[in-house]
Nucleic acid binder design. Structure first.
Length: 121
DNA sequence: GACCTGACGCCCC
DNA sequence: AGGGGCGCCAGGT
């Protein structure tokens, strides 16, 4: 019965939405960036905050998650303080050719990538 | 169990 | 154009 409060499908969903966020993040092409909102919209999470919350745990994953390619809708590096050093996120982006000025991506729509662009999905 | 705080985003001023 | 308010969902206190 769905009405039962026992841990069931919802918990399973919660356990897997982390992995879904990781999967989508790994699909962002090098040199491109996506946003919390776009990923949340694509996965129908209902809240962009959940994407940030998931990425906050991404460093615990065995496989490397290119979390530096996810920024907020303005192109700001809002997650930079959660990397090993405050400048690591910017360094990784610049290494991929993304121009960052004042902790913000210059002309984000030039680099923006939406998960919908994937034919597989 | 109420309350606060986030790697967000939209609306309003 | 920039700043504040509120909704959103999950976790921590």
């Amino acid at each position: 019965m769905p009405s039962k409060k026992s841990s069931g499908d919802k918990d399973i969903h919660n356990d897997h939405y982390f992995q879904k966020v990781f999967d989508v993040t790994c699909l962002i092409p090098e040199g491109k960036v996506s946003t919390y909102g776009a990923i949340a919209d694509f996965l129908a999470l209902g809240s962009a905050r959940m994407v940030g919350w998931a990425l906050n745990q991404s460093h615990r994953q065995e496989h490397f998650i290119p979390a530096h390619r996810v920024v907020n809708r303005l192109g700001e590096l809002s997650g930079r303080m959660h990397f090993a050093t405050p400048t690591l996120m910017q360094e990784r982006l610049e290494k991929e050719g993304v121009i960052v000025v004042n902790d913000k991506i210059d002309n984000i729509n030039h680099y923006f990538w939406h998960p919908r662009e994937l034919a597989e999905y």
